[in-house]
Amino acid sequence: MTESILGIILSALLTENFILVKFYGICPFMGVSKKIDTALGMGMAVTFVMALASAACYGVDLILQALSLTYMQTVVFILVIASIVQVVEMFLKKAVPALYKALGVFLPLITTNCAVLGVVLVNVQEGYGFLHSVVNGAAGGLGFTLAIVLFASVRERVDKAECPECFKGFPIALITAGLLALAFMGFSGLKIF
């Protein structure tokens, strides 16, 4: 049990990192990575939503399986995730204003993030139980945070460095992201026991 959970965490963080290995959620990865602070905020929000969506979609998937409607998983999950994020946002605004302020604009931004949908679909494909699903969601979010914070810190430095005119700005960021992904490919094959 613990072994399989540790395995899930390791693969979600490094070997199967959602951004740098699976290439999900590239949009916020490129868009919100200009500063480490905002990258960290985004990462936290994604982690939170991923864990929550994993838990909720596990329940919804049980219903779909009972009705033998599993072919509708994708579209139903989108619906579930979108409404969960909305409810959570309202709940946080009322109950935990401090957290609402910290997550700020990032919450609605990730409503339709493909990394969130991706983690839910992976849970279903791998046939994870409830605990494993939530762990996979949270670890996947932390993997997202790791990748985006690393990328943001590299980008902050690259912005100051001299680089050829034609590479300035976005092109060099794309190349940086590619190099970072190459580095993460080095983790492939890493296993617990």
């Binding site: 009705l67 139903v76 619906l79 579930v80 909305q86 409810v87 309202m90 709940f91 009322k94 109950a95």
Partner: peptide
């Protein structure tokens, strides 16, 4: 029917939530 029903339920839940958690 399932998708429409789910949409309706979520819509109602959201509407209720916006009343309950109104700030």
């Amino acid at each position: 029917a399932i998708l429409g029903g789910l949409g309706l339920i979520f819509g109602l839940v959201l509407a209720a939530a916006s009343k309950v958690f109104y700030v």
